[in-house]
């Protein structure tokens, strides 16, 4: 079995994995990092979105072996010593979540969006989040939260 080294939320892990092991199952079942959930099997819902080497990816559609040598940030690695990431705060403040199942992926995708576009318009936010489905919020408050999160991220680089 291939041996891989992956840093997840700041901790380095060395593990032997079956080639077919999905990154999300590596995170959840192997490392116990269950903050990242799985919502579909066709790359549509985005619930499993994480940052891999700084870019958003759907961890259900990446093999763990493909992440070898990589740096993964999940929703569990965003808060800096108890201090929430601005995007996490914005989601809370704007009521951008209800059941919260899409939220880890939505927050990660939003951070990725703002990393590439520090002041996105409503349309850019809606299009930028097209790969993350939410069934509860109707997205209105998510859009608000991303605008607010972007503002906070600009203010606190």
């Amino acid at each position: 079995m291939p041996r891989i080294t992956v840093t997840v939320d700041g901790t380095k892990y060395e593990e032997e994995v079956e080639p077919r092991l999905l990154l999300v199952h590596f995170l959840r079942d192997r490392l116990g990092r269950t903050g990242t959930p799985v919502g579909c099997d066709t790359t549509n819902c985005g619930a499993c979105t994480v940052l891999l080497d700084g870019l958003s990816v759907k961890s259900c559609s990446v093999l763990a072996v493909q992440a070898d040598g990589g740096d993964v940030v999940t929703v569990q690695g965003l808060a800096d010593g108890g201090e929430l990431h601005p995007m996490q705060r914005a989601f809370h403040e704007e009521h951008a979540l209800q059941c919260g199942y899409c939220t880890p992926g939505m927050i990660i995708a939003s951070i990725d969006l703002v990393n590439g576009n520090p002041d996105p318009t409503e349309t850019e936010i809606r299009e930028g989040l097209e790969g993350n489905l939410c069934r509860c919020t109707g997205y209105c408050n998510i859009v608000r939260a991303v605008r607010r999160g972007a503002e906070l991220m600009r203010a606190e680089p």
């Binding site: 790359t43 870019l55 958003s56 990816v57 759907k58 559609s61 930028g128 790969g131 993350n132």
Partner: peptide, 9 residues
Amino acid sequence: VADPAVRHR
């Protein structure tokens, strides 16, 4: 093509 996360990979 697809969405931003898919376009990253």
